[in-house]
Simulated assay, not measured.
Amino acid sequence: MRLEVRENVPIWAQGLAPVLAIFISLVICSLLILWAGKPVLESYGLLIDGALGTSFALSETLTRATPLIFTGLAAAIAFKAKLWNIGGEGQLYMGAVLATVLGSGLITLHPVLMIPFLMVTGAVAAGLLLLIPTLLKNYLRVDEVVVTLLLNFIVLLFVNYLLEGPMQDPMSMGWPQGSPIIDEGVLMPIMDKARLHLGFILALIAAVGCWIFMKFSLWGYEIRSVGLNSEAARFSGININRTLVLTALISGGMAGIAGVSEVAGLKGYLTLDMSPGFGYAGIAVAMLAMLHPLGVIASAIFFAGIYVGADSMSQGMGIPSYIADVMVAVSILMILLSMLLVRYRVIRG
């Protein structure tokens, strides 16, 4: 058995592959529901209703999808250049730290300026964090997967130190949390009696902006070229190191904005448990979207719906909510397999 590259892959096949992958994932997870002794269709009905059945459920799904869109974009852009950024979690927290430092009273601006200021500074801080493994990869050939993964733990330990010490809110009664973001820096809610905030709109704008950048700009073309064939890109005159540095700044910046969005839009202050793994989940979001920036929106909402709806399914049917993690993991595997079969055909002999 061997793999042979398909010369022409129709667009309908590329679009159908993730849909079939999700369907197969749901079929496989149905076996787990049957194993638990529960009806499959009713369980999935509760999951869908818990994620989309009411305006409140929809708002919770979109709220959960907001950081996933940002971290999904971070992974998609980096992976397009074959810069394997596994450090979205650390970059998210780095953006959140800068938002807390600057947005809790150190600097006060009009909201029209304060919110972009926090977004930009958080993005820059996270982008510079990803620049470390990128430069190590460029000049010392250090594996960026290992470095970005380890940086996640370093950043989380650093955040823990800050929240237990210099950045702890004096009004928190000893609880490890940062000072609250001032009103000028808070992302306003966009639905009544719901947690959905302006960060979701900014995430949609970021996804469209990334698509335009990657599709129509010269820099986007260079990023895609480096990812497709770095040697051919170098031969054509593209500066590989410069392109990877640019990729790192954009990718890390997207993850950093996710942290700013969570601090300034959802919680209002920094805590160590602010992210339940949004940085890692962003990789799954990007893979399901097949690294397409616009596809990241639908992918993020899909995964957010699974996580939010799983709670409703668990309460209504007595099924462990951890099945959501299984569904996400199986979806990733099926997506990877579908991407492989779309790009290659299996040849016997």
Score class of each variant (00 low, 15 high):
33 I>C: 00
329 A>F: 00
166 P>A: 10
135 L>R: 09
38 K>L: 07
259 G>Y: 04
295 G>E: 09
321 S>Y: 08
118 L>I: 11
18 P>C: 12
115 I>L: 15
267 K>N: 11
299 S>T: 07
95 G>N: 03
344 Y>R: 05
133 P>S: 13
314 S>H: 11
173 M>P: 03
102 L>Y: 02
95 G>R: 00
196 L>I: 10
229 N>Y: 01
153 F>V: 14
238 I>R: 07
81 A>D: 07
318 G>E: 00
26 L>A: 10
158 F>R: 04
269 Y>R: 09
133 P>R: 04
347 I>Q: 15
306 I>C: 01
280 Y>A: 11
61 T>R: 05
124 V>S: 11
62 L>S: 02
36 A>R: 13
196 L>T: 07
183 D>L: 14
97 V>I: 15
236 S>F: 06
291 L>E: 10
233 A>M: 03
79 F>M: 13
49 D>M: 14
155 V>D: 00
179 S>M: 15
46 L>V: 14
222 E>V: 06
199 G>Q: 04
8 N>M: 15
202 L>G: 01
284 A>H: 04
240 I>H: 08
71 T>A: 06
153 F>Q: 03
129 L>N: 00
317 M>P: 05
301 I>M: 06
2 R>K: 15
50 G>Y: 01
240 I>A: 06
99 A>H: 04
101 V>P: 02
279 G>A: 09
14 Q>P: 03
91 Q>C: 01
150 L>Y: 10
98 L>V: 15
277 G>R: 01
57 A>S: 13
252 G>L: 06
278 F>G: 00
71 T>I: 12
344 Y>G: 08
130 L>C: 10
132 I>R: 10
27 V>R: 10
288 L>D: 02
311 D>N: 15
33 I>V: 12
339 M>S: 14
66 T>D: 05
302 F>Y: 03
134 T>I: 11
54 T>K: 10
97 V>Y: 02
7 E>N: 14
102 L>W: 02
264 A>W: 11
342 V>A: 14
327 M>I: 11
58 L>A: 10
349 G>D: 09
190 I>D: 07
81 A>C: 13
219 W>Y: 14
306 I>W: 00
341 L>W: 11
54 T>D: 07
334 M>Y: 01
142 V>P: 02
285 V>E: 01
129 L>F: 05
270 L>T: 05
330 V>S: 01
222 E>Q: 14
27 V>N: 09
86 I>L: 13
82 K>R: 13
39 P>Q: 12
346 V>W: 15
174 G>N: 03
22 I>H: 05
106 L>W: 14
103 G>D: 06
264 A>G: 12
265 G>F: 02
74 A>T: 11
243 T>L: 10
87 G>F: 01
15 G>F: 15
198 L>S: 05
210 C>L: 12
4 E>P: 14
97 V>W: 01
